[in-house]
Computed example of a mutant assay.
Amino acid sequence: MKKVTMFVSKLVAVLAVLLVSGVTFAESTNPKQSHRFVVLAPHIVESMYAIGAGHQIVGTTDYADYPVEAQQIPRIGNYARIQIERVIELQPDVIIAWKTGNPPDDLARLQQLGFEVVYSHPEQLEDVASELKMLGQLTGRSQTAEQIATDYLSELDTLKRKYANATPVSVFYELWSRPLRTVAGNAWPQQQVALCGGVNPFMDAAEDYPQIGLESVLEQQPQVIIQPTQHGESAIDGITWQDYDYLSAVANGFIFHPNSDKVHRMTTRMLDELSILCTHLQTARDFYAQQDK
C-alpha cells in the first residue's frame, strides 16, 4: 500500500511539473514575444519591463527612464509631439499610447498610416492591474502579467483595509509651485492621499489639478504638506514652507517629500511610496491625537 501511495504522489508531482512547464513553454514560444513596440509614456515602459517585455520596445518618449535599461531606448518624441517619420522608420507591430498624455492628432495620423494603436488609460489605482494584463496579452506574457497584477491588487487591498477607518488628517499636496497647483477630484495622487486617510481641503475643486493661490493654502492650516520631488529629497523649486512656521504642518515637521516618479506614474512601484506615505500620515495622526488629549 505504501508503494502505491508513493507512486501516486510521484505521479502527481510529475504531472504538476509538466503542467507548469507546458504553460511556460507555450508562453515562451508565443510569436507575440517577438513583436516590436513603440511605447509612448514612461509608466507603460516601466510596466513592459516589469513583465519581461522591455527588450521589445524599439522607441519611446522623453522621461522614460526606469529601469536603467530604458534609458537606452531611442527617443521618438515627447508629450507634446511625436516624430512620425521616426515611427515609420521603426515599423513597430503595435504602438501603445497614453490616452490622455499623447497628442491626439499625431496618434490619429499614425492610425491613418495603418499602424495599430492600443491605448493605456488608467483612471483608478486598481487599473494598474488591468493595464499589466493588457500588456501581457499584447506581448505574449499573460501568465507573468497575471501574477504581478494579482500581487499588486493584494498589496493595494491590504493598504486599503489598514487605513479604511483612519482618523482624518488634513493634507495639502503641492503638485507644482509656479504656478501653485494641487490635486483634487479623481487625480492620481488624490486617490493615494484619500486611501491613507488624508483629507484634502481642495478636494472639490472644479478640475483634478487646479491652480490655487498661496493665501488659500495658508487659510486652510494643513496638518501635513506633501511636496513630491524627483528623488524624495527637499524640493529646490518648491514653496519654502519654512517661511510659514505658523502652519501646523511646518511647526510640527510634517512636510514629506515622496519620490514623484513613483507616486505619479501608474505602475506597481507606486505601492512602495504609497505605503511610506500612509506611514507618514499615521505618524502625524498619532501626534495630533496626543495634542488633543
Rank of each mutant, 00 (worst) to 15 (best):
Q124I: 00
M266F: 12
Q227L: 09
E215G: 14
L138S: 03
N30L: 01
V39W: 06
V224K: 09
T267K: 03
Q190D: 13
Y119C: 00
M48Y: 04
P222W: 00
L281M: 09
V20T: 13
L159K: 07
F25C: 11
E116G: 09
Q242G: 10
V68R: 02
V169D: 07
M270S: 11
Q71F: 12
Q282E: 13
Y163K: 02
E215H: 10
L271V: 03
E233I: 00
G136Y: 06
Q221E: 15
I73L: 15
Q191I: 07
I148G: 15
K2D: 06
M6E: 11
Q83W: 12
A251C: 09
R81L: 03
G185F: 01
D237W: 08
D127Y: 03
G213C: 08
Q72T: 13
A145T: 05
A187Y: 07
T167W: 07
E89P: 01
A129Q: 01
G52S: 06
R285A: 02
D93H: 07
T139H: 06
S34D: 05
V17W: 02
V183L: 02
P201W: 05
L274R: 06
K32D: 02
A205N: 08
F115H: 04
A16Q: 01
H257F: 13
W176M: 15
Q111L: 00
Q220Y: 10
D237A: 12
E126L: 15
I239S: 04
R265I: 13
P228Q: 07
L153M: 10
L180T: 13
T267S: 11
Y49E: 00
A289D: 00
A194K: 14
Q290W: 09
E207I: 05
V250A: 11
V17I: 07
E155W: 11
G238I: 08
L138T: 04
K262P: 05
P210A: 03
F25P: 12
M48I: 02
N78W: 03
D261V: 14
V87H: 15
L18I: 10
Y66C: 14
E155S: 13
V39K: 02
F172D: 10
V58Q: 13
G253D: 11
R161F: 00
A64D: 13
V199F: 09
N200A: 10
A187T: 00
V87C: 12
Y79N: 09
E219Q: 15
M270F: 05
I88T: 15
L107S: 10
N186V: 01
A251E: 15
Q190V: 14
E233C: 00
L11S: 13
L15S: 08
L277R: 04
H121P: 07
V171H: 12
V23A: 14
Q211M: 10
Y244E: 08
N78K: 03
L153W: 12
S34R: 01
T60F: 00
S216T: 13
A166S: 06
A289G: 08
P104C: 12
E155Q: 15
P228N: 12
L218D: 03
G232Y: 02
